[in-house]
Design a protein around this nucleic acid. Structure first.
Lengths: 335, 335
DNA sequence: CTTAGCACTCACGGTCATAGAGTGCTAATT
DNA sequence: AATTAGCACTCTATGACCGTGAGTGCTAAG
C-alpha cells in the first residue's frame, strides 16, 4: 500500500462520506488529484478493489469503501480533527450549567453527543469499581415495613422497602440504623455479606444492603440513548426494515448494554465497523466508543452509533470532548 | 346520520385500519354489505365525503376516513373490545414478577404497552397531589458538604448535596436531621417554606427540602417511551421526513411532557386524532391516553402514539389493562 | 329508494429509448 | 515502466408511453 494509494483511499472515504454517492475516477481526479489523470486513478481504484478496500455497487458505477476500507482509514489515515473553539466553548458552557444530578448529566451528555455527532448517542451510567457503605437509614412506612436507605461513596443512594419486626417503632429503627452504620461503615458488598450482622437485625436488611451496593457498582446496565431522529436522515436507513433492525437493538436495553459493555474501552477510542459487529443487527452500523471517568474509581461508556460511512474523525474528536466534559461534571458532583 | 351510514363509516374505518388501502364501494359491498349493491354504497359514500367523514386520495380511488371520520367512529361507534383472557393472564403474570422498583415498573408498563398496542407507548412517572415529608437525613460526604436525604409518603426519596457549616461533624448533622424531621414531619412543600427553620439550620437545607418535595409531586415531567420500532412499520411513516418529525417530538422530553400533561385525563380515556393535536408535528398521529392510579393521591399517565388509523378499540382495551396493572403494581410498592 | 349500466378518471406497472456516468482495455506517450 | 488518451462497452437512472383495472359519478329504469 503505497502512499498514493492511501491518498486515493482516503479521498474515496471522505468523498463518499459526504456525498453518499459512489465516487468515480473522474470525480476524484477533478476534486482531489488535479495532477493525475482519471485513467491512472482508475488503475489504482481497480487495485484497491482487488485488495478489498473498495467495492462497486455495480459494474459501471463508482467505488464505495468496504468495511475493510473504513478500517484502514480509521487505523492509518484518520485525520486528527479538533473541535472548533466556539463550539467547544458553547458545549463546555452547557455542561457547566447542568443540574447537579447524575441522571441529568448523563442525559445532557447523550443530548449533546447526538447533536454534535449528528447520530445516535449512547451513554451508560457510571460503574464503580468498589462501592463502600457510608451510612444506613431506616424509615418506618407502616408497621412491619421500613424504607431502607443506604448511602455509599460517590453519593450513591439505594432505597428499598424491607420487612422488619412489627414491634419496631421509628425510635428502634433509628437505633438499629445507627448500629448498622457503625458496624458496616466503609465496607463493600462482599465484606458485608460475610460479616455477621448485629443482633436483632432483620435478615432482609443485610441482604438488601449488600445487593444495593452491588447495584450501585454496576449502574452500567443502564444505557440511555438519544438522537434516533438523526438516524432516519441517513439514506442507508430509508429502507424501513433496516431501520427497524437497528431500532430493535437500540430499544432493547439488555442487548444494548451487553454490546456496549463488551466493547467498552477502559481508555482511548474503540471503533467497530459494520461487519465487525458481533450482532448481526448492527452490521450496517459503526460504533465509536470511549469512556468517561469521574475520579479514580468511577467510569462509564459514551458512544455514537451511525452508518458505516460516519465521519470518524469528526465524531471521534467530538466524542472525546463530550467524554471529558461528562467526566468533569460527574467529578464535581460525586467526589 | 342514519344507522346505515354509520355502519358504512364503521366498515370503512375498520377496513382501512387493517388494509391501509383506500376502500371502494365494491369491496365494501362484497365484504360487509352483501345485501346492498355497490351503487347504493357509492351514493352513501359520496354523502359521507360531503359531510367530511371520508376523503378520496384522488378522483378514482376508494375512500379513507378523515380525522373527523375517526372522531365519529371513536365517539359513537367504538366497539367495546376485551383483551383475550390468555393474553390478559400472561400480562398480569409479567406484572406480578416485576422488580419492586418504581422505574422498573414504569419501564415494564411501557414495554408491555408498546407490545400490546403495536405502537409507541408513553408513560409518565407518578405525580402526587401533595407530598408530605416523613423523614430527613444528613450524611457528611466531606467537610462542609452533606448529602441531604428527604423521604416523603409514597416512599419517594429525594437526595442532593448541600452546603453546611464546615464545623458540623456527622454527629451534629444527625442531630440536626432529627430536629428537622421533628419540626417538619407531615408537612408539604408550601408549609415548609413558610415555617421558620429551627435555629442553626443552613439555609440551603430548608430550600432543598421544599423544592425536593415539589419535584416528587411532579415526577410527571419524566416521560418514558418505548416501541419506536413499531412506528416504522406503518406505511404512513415510510417517508423519512414524516418519521423524523414525529421522532423529534418523542425524543424531546420537555415537549412530550407538555403534550401529555396538557391532555392527561384524570379518569377515563382521552383520544386525540390527527389535526386535533395542537402540536403540528403530531398531526399525522393519534394519541390514546388514560391514567393509572396507585392509592388515593398518586397517579400518572399512560398513552399510545400511532398513526391516525390506529385500532382504537383494541388499543383502548389493552391500554386500560396495562393501566390497571401498572396502578396495582405501584400500589403494592408504594402504599 | 335502489340498482344496473356506462362512460370516464387516474394510479400503477411494464416496456422502451435515451442520456450519461463510469469502467476496462489498448496503444501511444513520456 | 508509469502515465495517459481514446474508445467501446456496461449499466443505471429518467422520462415517455400505454394498457389495465379499480373505482367513480351520473342517468335511467325498476
Amino acid at each position: 500500500m503505497d502512499q498514493r494509494k492511501e491518498r486515493i483511499l482516503g479521498a474515496v472515504v471522505s468523498d463518499y462520506t459526504e456525498t453518499v454517492v459512489p465516487v468515480g475516477s473522474h470525480a476524484l481526479a477533478a476534486r482531489y488529484f488535479l495532477e493525475l489523470s482519471s485513467a491512472t486513478i482508475r488503475n489504482e481504484l481497480s487495485e484497491l478493489v482487488d485488495d478489498g478496500f473498495l467495492a462497486q455497487p455495480h459494474a459501471s458505477a463508482g467505488r464505495i469503501p468496504t468495511d475493510l476500507g473504513y478500517r484502514y482509514f480509521v487505523d492509518f489515515l484518520l485525520p486528527q480533527e479538533i473541535v472548533e473553539p466556539p463550539l467547544r466553548r458553547q458545549v463546555r458552557h452547557s455542561f457547566e450549567g447542568a443540574a447537579p444530578d447524575v441522571e441529568a448529566i448523563l442525559e445532557l451528555a447523550a443530548a449533546t453527543l447526538s447533536r454534535l455527532s449528528e447520530n445516535v448517542a449512547l451513554v451508560t451510567g457510571p460503574t464503580q469499581s468498589e462501592a463502600r457503605l457510608l451510612h444506613v437509614e431506616l424509615v418506618l412506612v407502616r408497621p412491619g415495613q421500613a424504607l431502607l436507605i443506604a448511602v455509599a461513596n460517590g453519593n450513591a443512594v439505594h432505597q428499598r422497602v424491607v420487612e422488619v419486626g412489627a414491634d419496631l417503632d421509628q425510635e428502634a429503627l433509628s437505633q438499629l440504623a445507627n448500629r448498622l452504620t457503625a458496624h458496616y461503615a466503609g465496607m463493600s458488598a462482599g465484606a458485608i455479606s460475610q460479616l455477621a450482622a448485629p443482633a436483632g437485625t432483620p435478615a432482609q436488611v443485610v441482604q438488601e444492603l449488600a445487593s444495593g451496593l452491588r447495584q450501585m457498582e454496576t449502574r452500567a446496565s443502564l444505557v440511555i440513548h438519544d438522537g434516533v431522529r438523526n438516524l432516519v436522515r441517513n439514506p442507508e436507513f430509508e429502507d424501513p426494515n433496516r431501520l427497524r433492525t437497528v431500532l430493535e437493538v437500540l430499544e432493547a436495553q439488555r442487548i444494548l448494554a451487553a454490546v456496549v459493555s463488551e466493547l467498552a474501552p477502559r481508555v482511548g477510542l474503540q471503533v467497530v465497523i459494520g461487519h465487525e459487529n458481533r450482532l448481526q443487527e448492527l452490521q450496517d452500523c459503526s460504533l465509536v466508543l470511549t469512556s468517561y471517568r469521574a475520579g479514580d474509581h468511577l467510569w462509564g461508556t459514551l458512544g455514537v452509533v451511525g452508518p458505516t460511512r460516519i465521519r470518524y474523525g469528526r465524531v471521534a474528536a467530538r466524542l472525546q470532548l463530550v467524554s471529558q466534559l461528562t467526566g468533569e461534571a460527574l467529578s464535581r458532583l460525586l467526589t
